[in-house]
Each structure stands twice: as C-alpha cells, then as structure tokens.
Computed example of a mutant assay.
Amino acid sequence: MLDVLLIFLVQIIFVPILTLRTVFMVKNENKKASVVGALEAVVYIFGVSLVLTGEQSIAAMIAYSLGFGIGIYIGGIIETKLAIGYTAYNVNLPSKNQELLDRLRNDGYGVTNYTGEGRDGYRYKMEILTKRSRERELELIIEMYEPKAFIISYEPRKFKGGFLVKSMKKRLKKKQQQEQSSATSA
C-alpha cells in the first residue's frame, strides 16, 4: 500500500514539473527548462523504479493515473500563478478614447493606436503588450472605460525594441544599481 501512495505522490510532483519544463521550452527559456528538466528526470526515474519493481496491481495503476490527472491540474494552477511571458492585446473601439489611452500609458502599458475602416465606419485599434501577470488588471481598465470593446489576445513568442523593452531595461539597470549600492554600503 505504501508503494501505491508513493506512486500517487510522485505523479503529483512529476507532472507539474513536466508542465513547467514544457512552458519554459515554449517561451524560449532554455536554461530554466534544462534545470527543471533535470529535476523532472530524477522524479521520473524514481517513479518508474517504483512502478517496475513493485507489484503490478490495479491499485498501483489507478494511483498512477489519478496522480497524473491531479498533477496536470496542479501544474496548470502553478503555471497560471507564475504567469510566465507576455500577452499582446488588440483592442477595437468604436471611437478614439483618449482617456483610456492616457490611463493605460500612465499605468505603464505600451500602447500603439491606429485608425481603421470597418464595416460600419471608422474603428480605433490599440495594440498593447503586457506581462501575463498584468492581464486581468489591463482587462479591468479596458472594461471600465470601454465595456463594448472587442478584444483579441495572443501570446507573442518574440519581440524586439519598443516601449516595453526599454522600460524593462531601465528597471533592470535601476535594480542592479540599487543592489550594487546596498552591497557596497554593507
């Protein structure tokens, strides 16, 4: 019975690690993926050795399957909480909403605004790139100013330059300077 419980627990640990490694690979975070992959291999080998050396019972198979399913669920929760990466939003509006543009820019979002022609006349489109951790905040702001906005979001794999990259570099440089000054004062 202890083996069955261990198989269940190993799956609950293994599958979230597998999920994170996959996410890191998709996001081109290869160094992180390799570290997590090494941990994944250790857990996997431990789990396989339990399965292969133990008695092949229905209970062990059920524990393996349930642990796998629960591990997928837990891995999804962990990935959502980590919110790795960025999301690009295309927001279509019936009229140019300067208040919304100003609010988004003041809150640190990089926004590019376009005018286009739709079926029923001119439309206004905003392109916004944000960290995944700020998605909900962005959606709430848009909803507050433009409840009928048409929104499409997607995850970009690569980007170069632009407002967001510059601001991230500035924040990183400022953080490094703060760390250096606190290290020299200590």
Rank of each mutant, 00 (worst) to 15 (best):
I74Y: 04
S34H: 09
L50V: 00
T22I: 08
A88I: 15
G162W: 04
I151T: 04
R157G: 15
L20V: 06
G54V: 02
M25D: 10
E155H: 15
K166P: 05
L50S: 07
S133F: 08
I13A: 07
F159R: 05
V35W: 07
E117F: 04
V43N: 02
I142D: 01
S34T: 12
L104Y: 01
K31W: 09
F8P: 05
V36I: 05
T19I: 03
G116C: 00
A38G: 11
N28A: 10
K166E: 15
R105S: 08
K81L: 11
G37F: 01
Q98V: 13
K148E: 15
S95R: 14
I74W: 01
G54N: 03
L6R: 03
A186N: 15
V165N: 15
I72A: 02
K158R: 15
N113W: 10
G76W: 09
A83Q: 07
A41P: 05
Q177M: 11
L82F: 05
I142C: 01
L52E: 03
L20C: 07
V48F: 04
I58H: 09
Y109L: 08
S49Q: 13
S185M: 13
A149Y: 05
I45E: 03
I84Y: 07
F163H: 13
L129Y: 07
K174R: 07
I142K: 03
A38P: 06
L101P: 01
M61Q: 13
E40F: 07
Y86D: 10
N30S: 13
K158C: 10
L104W: 03
E139P: 09
E40I: 02
I128E: 01
N28E: 13
Q180A: 14
K148Y: 07
V51L: 08
K32G: 11
G37Q: 01
N30P: 06
Q11F: 13
N90T: 10
S153Q: 11
A88C: 12
I84S: 06
N90A: 12
V48K: 00
G118N: 05
Y89F: 13
D107T: 12
V15M: 03
E179V: 07
E99M: 05
T87E: 12
Y145K: 04
Q177G: 09
K160R: 13
L9Y: 05
S133T: 12
N92Q: 11
M144P: 03
M1D: 07
I72R: 05
D120E: 15
K96P: 09
K158W: 08
N97C: 07
M144G: 14
T53G: 10
S34L: 04
V26H: 11
F68N: 00
Q177R: 14
G67N: 02
Q98E: 14
R171V: 10
Q177E: 15
G69W: 01
L50I: 10
I12C: 03
G118W: 00
S185N: 12
P16V: 00
E179A: 10
N28K: 14
I17V: 08
